[in-house]
């Protein structure tokens, strides 16, 4: 814990990897069968570049959450393939997927992100401890310092504000230096000031450490923090925006009729 914060910014963690951090081909997810079948994903081909901040957008029921769950190995696709770097997720068994999630994927959810019985510090190191790993103290300090959690490490979740809880979740996601961080509506439950703070932190982790981040959101102003926006409608890809702004995202959404 005594490592000076100064040394940290000069330590980009991103290892050498292929340019595509996550890739999906022909991804389908169908609920039910026959007449009543619902196609949450109806054949999606998408690639997320490493070191990029991508937002997935779309109207309610467009399949954006399902897409993220399949990409993150939380849910299994009906057809198609998902690749995390060189690993094909679709061929993994549950225990292998679980291990992969804790080692190579970080999560930030909309709500109920933290375990109430653990304090902030314990929540942050939880995924690494589940795998029996010890976090690198210097990196831990750096992450905690950047998220401004140094004074809050001993607090239980119910003693933290919503914004603070999301910052703890981000710290937890970043700590194992995952291949990709998935954020599911991370600002959905926050006031606008805390929301902006959280988005800024995700943004800076991409800029400063080369972290890949994929975020699902329905808020155009949140999507504007991303490098790229992928639009989804009725389970299909419906648009792709580079360097989005709130206005361009809004326009694109209107074009979908959402």
């Amino acid at each position: 814990m005594s490592v000076p914060v100064m040394t940290v910014p000069g330590e980009p963690p991103a290892p050498a990897r292929t340019t595509a951090a996550v890739r999906a081909t022909g991804l389908r997810k169908t609920y039910g069968s026959g007449e009543t079948a619902v196609h949450a994903l109806a054949g999606v081909d998408v690639t997320f570049a490493a070191g990029e901040f991508t937002a997935i957008m779309g109207p309610s029921g467009s399949g954006k959450s399902t897409l993220m769950h399949c990409l993150a190995g939380l849910d299994t696709a009906t057809a198609g393939e998902v690749w995390l770097g060189d690993t094909a997720l679709t061929s993994l068994r549950d225990d292998q997927l679980t291990t992969l999630r804790r080692q190579r994927i970080g999560f930030v959810f909309q709500s109920f992100n933290l375990l109430p019985v653990l304090d902030a510090r314990e929540n942050i190191v939880l995924p690494m401890q589940l795998g029996g790993l010890r976090p690198d103290p210097a990196w831990f300090d750096a992450v905690v310092a950047r998220l401004g959690l140094r004074e809050r490490l001993r607090h239980r979740p119910h003693e933290l504000s919503g914004g603070q809880q999301q910052r703890v979740a981000i710290a937890r996601a970043l700590l194992p230096r995952p291949d990709v961080v998935f954020a599911d509506e991370p600002t959905g439950n926050l006031d606008s000031r805390s929301g902006a703070e959280v988005l800024g932190l995700l943004r800076s982790s991409v800029k400063e450490t080369g972290q890949t981040v994929v975020m699902v959101t329905h808020d155009p102003s949140a999507a504007a923090y991303a490098d790229r926006v992928v639009l989804l409608a009725d389970g299909r890809l419906a648009g792709d925006l580079a360097d989005p702004t709130a206005e361009s995202v809004l326009d694109a959404l209107r074009g979908l009729g959402g």
Partner: peptide, 16 residues
């Protein structure tokens, strides 16, 4: 239920 789901998402195996 939610909490256990979160733990599973974060890398808690079924056995754990």
């Amino acid at each position: 239920r939610q909490e256990n789901g979160l733990l599973r998402a974060l890398g808690l195996t079924r056995g754990q």
